[in-house]
Computed example of a mutant assay.
Amino acid sequence: MDIFLMPGEYFVGDAQYRVRTLLGSCVSITLWHPALRIGAMSHFLLPGHGRRKADRPSDKPGMYGADAMQLLVEGMAQNGVPLAQCQGKIFGGGAMFPRTDKVRDIGTQNGDYARSMLQQHGIHVVSESLFGEGHRHLIFTIRSGEVLSRQVPPEPGWGSAGAKTA
């Protein structure tokens, strides 16, 4: 069965699922337990924590990286999955507009934050596809643990304001 994650959503399931999403500056973390064939995937927009519950609409509980990670951890625990035995993968953090040397853009912040969260939880990162320009299409097949990632560069002629130039 196919599941499509929108920004701020997450999913935990077994081998019958394949999870898809589309990332720009957002980041997805996948967790996978090879023996149990249970996996989890997030799609978060911002690093850090939501300040108040009011900041997190109930239909988008994983908007912030720390909140999304906590949801993944809880979901895996509910399925009896020991985090130390999981494989972690990180994707996204792309630049949707030209990067400047002066500012650490949100995609870079998201990617760095995802790395630190996995490290804090003792989860071994086996693969990552972070940063660069444009957006990514992801497909996570929980049965195999495979994550297909295709990065699509921005169209030529798009300027930093997002308007197409002639």
Rank of each mutant, 00 (worst) to 15 (best):
L5T: 04
C86I: 04
Y10H: 14
I90T: 01
P57G: 07
N79L: 12
Q85H: 12
G107T: 07
Q151S: 12
Q78M: 15
Q119D: 15
Q87R: 11
L71K: 07
K89I: 05
D101S: 09
G80S: 14
S127P: 02
D105I: 00
P98C: 13
S28G: 06
E146F: 15
S25D: 01
R37V: 00
A114S: 03
R37E: 02
G50I: 01
D14Q: 05
Q119V: 12
E9N: 14
S42T: 09
S28E: 06
G145C: 10
H33N: 13
G13I: 00
S129H: 15
Y17R: 06
G94H: 14
F4W: 11
P34I: 10
L36I: 08
I142Q: 00
R143H: 04
C86L: 05
I90E: 01
H33K: 12
S116Q: 15
G48M: 01
G50S: 05
F11V: 05
G39L: 11
S127I: 02
H124N: 08
I38V: 14
L118M: 05
P34V: 11
S28R: 13
Q16M: 11
N110A: 15
L72P: 04
V147F: 02
K164N: 00
D55C: 09
A68T: 11
D67Y: 13
V147P: 04
M69I: 08
M76G: 10
R150L: 11
H49S: 10
K53R: 04
N79K: 10
Q120Y: 11
Q119H: 13
P82R: 05
V152K: 13
S58H: 09
M117T: 04
F131I: 10
L45K: 15
K164E: 00
S25T: 06
E128M: 07
L45C: 13
L45R: 14
T141P: 01
H49R: 15
G132Y: 03
D59L: 00
H43Q: 15
G48A: 01
V103S: 01
G159N: 15
K53H: 03
G111A: 13
G80E: 14
H49C: 03
W158Y: 10
C26R: 03
V73H: 10
V103C: 03
A77L: 08
L118G: 03
Y17M: 03
G93S: 10
D101E: 11
P82Y: 00
L71I: 07
I38Q: 14
M117Q: 02
A114T: 02
G24I: 04
D59K: 02
K102D: 12
G157E: 01
V19R: 13
R52Y: 12
A40E: 14
F44N: 15
P153H: 15
E128G: 06
V103I: 03
P154D: 04
E128F: 03
G145E: 02
K53C: 03
Q78E: 13
I123G: 09
Y10N: 13
L148K: 14
G132M: 05
L46D: 09
G8W: 02
E9L: 05
K89E: 05
P7R: 06
L118P: 04
